[in-house]
Write a protein that binds this DNA or RNA. Structure first.
Lengths: 219, 219
DNA sequence: GGGTGAGGCTAATACCCATTAGCCAATCGG
DNA sequence: CCGATTGGCTAATGGGTATTAGCCTCACCC
């Protein structure tokens, strides 16, 4: 019954019904980005190892193996997502610090940036934190290094503020962890169709953080 | 070449070298609990779907299939871990609230209990939060219900405090989320061989939470 | 002192999944 | 217009994994 090598009535493939654009103005049809986006949503909702290539393909109307015409591996998708997330977080943090101001203002800025990113890009952030262990070396170590760098900025600022007697808190270690974790938590529950915008939330959390540190009123 | 039914030189099994105890005083040798403990550590470090039955068996010096003499399925292990965690959290929270006191004291208590549990039982807590999506229905829904109940207590207390003008905070919703998330974060980084004990950390975080809420000094 | 049950073992079952191979149609640059 | 490239497809590959089946041995009880 095997119809091996028979070319007659085989069901064959009809490529994308919508016309393909040339690589000029390919922006909206960049398959690579589309795949990353689809993977991101799936990784966030059912986890990296819970997501199959076939599911990612489904989102784009294609089969799992076809993805390999555009990407190298499933792992590559995760690496791109996570490094993209850390790079962007660090970039924004650096920009915030570059604006200067006194310790309270700078701390408030990096908290705001932290929270805003975790709301705006909740999927990237969620995956970036949850799936670090799914990264193969050396990516895992690299990301952990970046994260340590990112986190140390919070601690440094808290220390600085304490040194200037602008913050009253028993431990800069625990309070900076608390601030970080409350921001990370946002990525787990933030709902973009809810009533609060990322920047409103960022402002609220910055205020909470300053109060938590017992910041002296700076006016 | 198949040696089917040949009984000659087959390698066979030598059961546990250490003498087995009778079921009297079996406490320290309860296989079921040993399995749960081994699974817990593995689930926490490499994730539920990343853990194989063979790995769990390894920890106890046995093969994967042998586990089924003591448990029903891998899923059962996760269910027991996660429901055990939520039950204990709720139990402790109820006990804390039962002690009464003014809003500040009660809020402080449930924060302390929350943090203490997340430090003392960081693996349970970590798995309990991270692997909820690995639970099959109806367990998943049940756990989510319990979690909603647990979380609502925080929000209710913040609201109550605001109503009495004891807390100054713009939103009881966001501030209770922040408090919850900073406690949950503890389970991701707490190191039991570090210098801070769970109850010290609990006290510190309770203080941070009250300050975050702008609690009026209650002395 | 033999039967029984508990608790190991290995082998087999019945999946699922990432990735590769190899085929083909349509598009596009010349 | 043609021939190479692009980007789909299906089928095959190679591996992993939870769970079940069936076997065996020891410890214990009578």
């Amino acid at each position: 019954m095997a119809v091996r090598n028979r070319l007659t009535g085989e069901r064959t493939h009809v490529p994308s019904a919508v016309g393909r654009r040339s690589r000029v103005a390919s922006g909206p049809h960049d398959r690579h980005h589309e795949i990353i986006d689809a993977a991101l949503e799936l990784f966030a909702t059912i986890g990296y190892s819970g997501t199959t290539m076939a599911q990612i393909g489904d989102r784009l109307g294609m089969r799992g193996p076809s993805l390999y015409k555009h990407i190298a591996s499933k792992q590559e998708l995760l690496v791109e997502i996570v490094t993209g997330m850390m790079d962007e977080l660090l970039r924004r943090q650096r920009a915030a610090l570059a604006e200067g101001g006194d310790v309270r203002q700078r701390l408030s800025s990096i908290v705001a940036v932290h929270v805003q990113y975790h709301a705006e890009h909740r999927y990237e952030a969620f995956v970036g934190h949850r799936e670090i262990d799914s990264l193969e070396e050396p990516h895992r170590s690299h990301i952990l290094d970046l994260r340590r760098e990112y986190e140390s900025r919070f601690r440094e600022l808290v220390q600085e503020g304490r040194g200037l007697d602008l913050f009253r808190t028993s431990s800069d270690r625990w309070s900076s962890y608390a601030i970080l974790d409350m921001g990370i938590g946002v990525s787990a529950w933030y709902n973009p169709s809810g009533s609060v915008t990322p920047d409103e939330l960022a402002a609220t959390y910055a205020e909470l953080a300053l109060r938590m540190l017992g910041a002296e009123r700076g006016d």
